[in-house]
Amino acid sequence: MSDKKLIIAGVVIFVAVVAFPFWFNMGKAAPAPELELTERAKELNHGKCVMPTDYMQSEHMQLLDLWRHSVVRNAKRTFVNTSGQEFNMSLTNTCLDCHANKAEFCDRCHDYASVRPYCWDCHIDNPKETE
């Protein structure tokens, strides 16, 4: 019967759609990206970022957003972290000073997680990288 054929076709389409992630990634290994720290990032501030690493991993976008708000709206540029250290709130001059390797540091995770931050709309690649 023609209905039987239609139903079988529907089931095949259903399985193909549900199994999409499996056949799309067939034979591909997708390890989590390895981040590279620059020498400067390892040396400066005893290899510590402005906040602890696990905080930075998940919350750096929030911190940057608050920094932007503080600088642009309140003209306050000094950030004091939990251990009392002071930093200049600046993506280009503070973050990218150490993490000058945007391609190996920022982009690897962002590409892996399919995130396209609009930071780079204005903050173009650190000029130091081109030197």
Binding site: N25, A29, P31, A32, Q57
Partner: peptide
């Protein structure tokens, strides 16, 4: 309560690549 997205994707990619 932000999670580590990279770790999350590591787990899900492990599932779909059967590793």
């Amino acid at each position: 309560a932000k999670i580590d997205v990279i770790a999350a994707k590591e787990l899900t990619m492990g599932l779909v690549t059967f590793h």
